[in-house]
Design a binder for these strands. Structure first.
Lengths: 344, 344
DNA sequence: AGAACGATTGTTAACGTTCACAGCGCGGCT
DNA sequence: AGCCGCGCTGTGAACGTTAACAATCGTTCT
């Protein structure tokens, strides 16, 4: 009788019939194959619109080799860094006509990464972006017998896998130099969790920058990215008169540190200057507003995708992309150190 | 010659051959069909392990009807709420054996939602979770001629679509009551962006709770979730002696507000009490630690998924799930109001 | 003029799985 | 004895697309 809007969505053969061509011609038009007459192409496209036809990605993936879907393996998508990177990748992927499937890791060991990758392989994703900047991710990846093209975010020397990274070394240098230039004798450091590569890079750059400037290197304080750990570090540092400048491995830790200082009557930046890392949206509104290192995660996402697409085209050579350079955002939590230089 | 590890992954027919059965029997074993002899099942499973066989999700989706992949339409995955919900949904989905494809909305209008849903439909997802709590999402959804089962997070009366939501009304009531109980004459409100349903709910609950208690309702202050907008609001409220208690629509706004108060010498909670909403991880370490309303996003994610799976089983009746109840987390930003009540 | 060529289109066979149905062997019932 | 039914297994045909090859037509080269 009537089917004003067919309950079953149109498929390629329907379009072909309506346009009076074969299904293969429709396929050619959709994939931009050159040898199709303009008049035919028009006819097909009209039919496509008329039926509101959308090609079935599953069938596409099955028949062809590529699946227009990328996988993303992430860790804690509530953390600012991973979340921002994920968003960047997703945007870039969508712009390039790819869908994005995500898997968040529960455990960080070899099996965790392996399971995640298997799950994605099952969906036959065309490629994978791994946002899991752990020291042991590299090892896990190396031993993976997978044929899927993959790029890694922030994984340092990750077993030969192509990687995109923000230049953590440069960032930490910016932070330490900024503090030294303001007249501080040295800079203390609240580092991030040791199984994160970024944390290690920041710590070692902090150390080497101090050494290069001929300053003493104070003992490092442990942290785990959380504001709570920064708070603990703050309580520990608050009593120490030698502490005039602190570089926190991320902004949340800096927040906790500021809180502890505030409680203990340590004034920032009058008594102690503080620098964070990331430039989370809240940094500008902390008490006082936090000087920090900004990373362009959107750019990271874009480059990741560009790299992955390069890799899909020519799987032989691994493209090399430059590191993304972070910048210093100077706010009220750091100030010129008045005379009274350190102890004496 | 030799193929110690075949370059091409094994498929079902390979398993069948190795186990000495037909491909269909393999399929039955994999899908838990009851009528397979135990001995046969064992033989098949052994072959599966031996070949490291993983079923191809694309082929599965094409042949059967279901595709073991769920779609998630989200908005700003850097915001705490959406990010946490996304994580919750992903975890629950993975536990149920589903993959998750995400699409983040760029624009909030009808076309945006429509495009996102089309993109997911193309991948023939089994169902969709929509984390896009906008006032006009509802309208966009209603006019969507889609056959995909969908559940919506926080969408209030969203055109008959099944929805999971945190009880915003109850949350806002908790906040306002808490402040009134501490002796405040009334409570001011910095609301969220007007196109978010949650913002509207919180505002109207704030209003009605005040009215129910017979208190005057001060003019509402605009905000947009950002700390920056909270800061602006804070500057505006700081000079006003009538302001003794403020309920911010989210924690970021509260952060900005606290910053503005701090700058203007308004002490919290001595002069003004502040309550936020969400209980972001940073809330505990603000200056002072923020009293706020905690939402259990993990629970939201779990229920979302349970609901969607129910819906997949029986598409006829829309299951009804209770709202998730938020709780008050009392911290130092609110305190008992000392005598000196309001102005005069 | 004959043949070979390029442009355009159609035909058939994959891709790897599930679904629908047909078979087989065995026990219990009439 | 024959028949039905049940537990188990196999066979063929989908699903919707792309890849590989064949076919047709008008043109150009020798």
């Amino acid at each position: 009788m009537d089917q004003p809007s067919p309950p079953r969505p149109a498929v390629m053969i329907d379009v072909a019939r309506l346009a009076g061509v074969s299904h293969q011609t429709v396929s050619r038009v959709l994939n931009g194959h050159p040898s199709v007459r303009d008049e035919t192409r028009e006819r097909v496209l009209t039919a496509v619109r008329q039926l509101n036809y959308r090609p079935n990605a599953l069938a596409r993936g099955l028949a062809g080799r590529r699946s227009r879907v990328l996988g993303v393996v992430s860790f804690d998508t509530i953390l600012y860094g991973p979340a921002a990177t994920l968003l960047g990748v997703e945007r870039a992927a969508r712009a390039a006509g790819y869908g994005v499937s995500i898997v968040t890791l529960e455990q960080l060991d070899h099996d965790g990464v392996s399971d995640a990758l298997s799950a994605l392989a099952e969906q036959s994703v065309a490629g994978v972006v791994i946002i899991a900047p752990f020291t042991n991710t590299a090892a896990a990846l190396r031993s993976l017998p997978m044929g899927i093209p993959a790029v890694v975010v922030e994984a340092g020397a990750s077993g030969g896998l192509p990687a995109i990274s923000v230049d953590q070394i440069a960032g930490a240098e910016l932070a330490v130099r900024h503090l030294l230039e303001q007249g501080h004798e040295t800079v203390w450091h609240v580092r991030g969790p040791q199984n994160w590569l970024e944390a290690r890079d920041r710590e070692s750059a902090w150390r080497s920058t101090l050494e290069a400037a001929g300053r003493s290197v104070p003992p490092v304080i442990d942290g785990d990215w959380s504001a709570a750990s920064g708070y603990q570090a703050g309580l520990r540092l608050a009593g120490d008169p030698r502490v005039t400048a602190v570089f926190c491995a991320n902004d949340q830790q800096a927040l906790g540190l500021l809180r502890a200082f505030h409680e203990r009557g340590v004034r920032v930046p009058d008594n102690v200057s503080v620098v964070g890392f990331d430039d989370i949206p809240e940094a500008e509104f902390m008490s006082p507003p936090l000087t920090t290192i900004r990373q362009d995660f959107d750019e990271v996402g874009r480059r990741c995708l560009a790299m992955l697409l390069d890799l899909l085209d020519s799987p032989v050579e691994t493209p090399v992309y430059p590191r993304v350079t972070p910048v210093l955002v100077s706010r009220a939590s750091t100030g010129i150190r008045q005379s009274a230089n350190a102890n004496s």
